[in-house]
Simulated scan of single mutants.
Amino acid sequence: MTTTQVRQDYGKDPLQVRDTNHYTEEYVHAFVDKWDQLIDWDRRAESEGDFFIRLLQEQGAKKVLDVATGTGFHSVQLLKAGFEVTSADGSPVMLGKAFENARRRDHILRTVHADWRWLNRDVHDYYDAVICLGNSFTHLHDENDRRKALAEFYATLRHDGVLILDQRNYDAILDHEIAPSHNFYYCGDNVRATPEHMDESLARFRYEFPDDDVFHLNMFPLRKNYVRRLLKEVGFQRVTTYGDFKETYRETEPDFFIHVAEKRYLEEESEH
């Protein structure tokens, strides 16, 4: 990916792009520059409240690895709350934007450019918590990639560490053709994020901005119970799932699911 790239390129048939390695070409400079319009930091902070901060504090976490830094929202929120944070991302363009965003808010990010599948090649430390937020895990299109990434997350955690991973509620879209309301994650004004194509192996989303710019992301539609199963199979002992920052929800309500996977060994397994 070059620094002058401004347009996404999916080739002649965009529905054929079901490849993990393509994510670096999706986050072109022009899209990254507009990403914060889609998120709206202030409104997102209001919608999330202290949910993630509280979760991490309850787990006794102090040292956190943000593996999906994006433009830096969660890294900055955690730094403000007093956590020690390392910020990683597979897109150097995103990391550059995140560093700039943090500096404008009087914080200096400790950044690492890393592919999750080889995370521990570039990250040489142990953490109390790993966070993978912003629907980022959906960029892995191959099951081997998903298992490898989770194994890398697991390996960088201390013996009693915790992984917090979120995902869009693809179950509702796949099963009931319900479009997410975007009340929680995509808070920007006059920005539309809509599913353009959906099948069991591809979720193609269209992002429309007020200046008529249009971008796309091709993602894998992760089902909630599939992700929970993968987390358990990798070795996490207990997985608690929340819907839009609440532990009680009706299956069709949440835009997003948040999985809290504990590495700490438990004699008796508890399910939520």
Score class of each variant (00 low, 15 high):
H139C: 11
Y185L: 15
T71V: 07
N218L: 11
L109C: 13
V67R: 08
N183V: 00
I53Y: 11
Y242L: 08
H182R: 11
H159T: 07
D166Y: 04
K12G: 14
M94Q: 06
K12V: 14
I53Q: 15
R117Y: 06
N120S: 12
R44D: 05
V93P: 06
S47I: 06
H176W: 06
E46G: 01
Y207C: 06
W41V: 08
K263Q: 01
F153C: 04
L38T: 12
Y126E: 15
T194A: 09
A81I: 11
T69Q: 01
G188T: 08
R158M: 05
V112A: 09
D199R: 01
P195F: 02
Y242A: 10
I258H: 10
Y170E: 01
F184Q: 08
M94V: 09
F205M: 15
L157A: 03
E177S: 14
G82T: 07
R104G: 03
D42R: 08
F51T: 07
V214R: 06
V239K: 01
V130K: 05
D89V: 10
D212C: 10
D33H: 04
V260S: 11
D115N: 14
L150I: 00
R204V: 06
I131G: 03
D128Q: 06
W118M: 14
L174C: 02
N21I: 10
D160W: 00
P92R: 11
L55F: 00
R44I: 02
E100G: 05
L266T: 12
H259E: 00
T69C: 05
D122A: 14
Y154T: 03
R238F: 02
H141Y: 03
G235A: 09
L65M: 06
K62L: 09
A129L: 04
N218A: 14
H182I: 02
N135L: 00
V93S: 12
E267M: 04
L157M: 00
V227F: 09
A203C: 15
V85K: 07
F52C: 00
A88K: 08
Y27F: 15
K224H: 08
D255E: 15
L65G: 03
Q16Y: 08
K97E: 15
E196P: 08
A149E: 01
P180N: 06
R228D: 12
D9T: 13
L38Y: 04
K80G: 10
M219A: 11
I131W: 02
R7C: 09
D171Y: 04
D9F: 09
D33K: 07
K12Q: 12
D199Q: 07
G72Y: 04
S91P: 11
R229I: 07
T71E: 14
D36C: 04
Q59C: 04
Y170F: 12
I258W: 02
F51R: 01
L119T: 13
M1L: 13
A129Y: 05
F245R: 15
D211F: 02
S75R: 07
R158V: 11
L202D: 13
A68N: 05
E84R: 13
Y249S: 07
D171F: 05
W118E: 15
D145W: 06
Y154F: 11
C187M: 12
F83Q: 01
N225M: 07
A98D: 04
L230G: 09
F236Y: 11
F257M: 00
V32F: 03
V162M: 05
V191W: 00
R228M: 10
E152I: 00
H113S: 04
Q5P: 10
R117T: 08
T111E: 03
V214W: 05
V85A: 11
D50A: 08
V6A: 13
R54N: 15
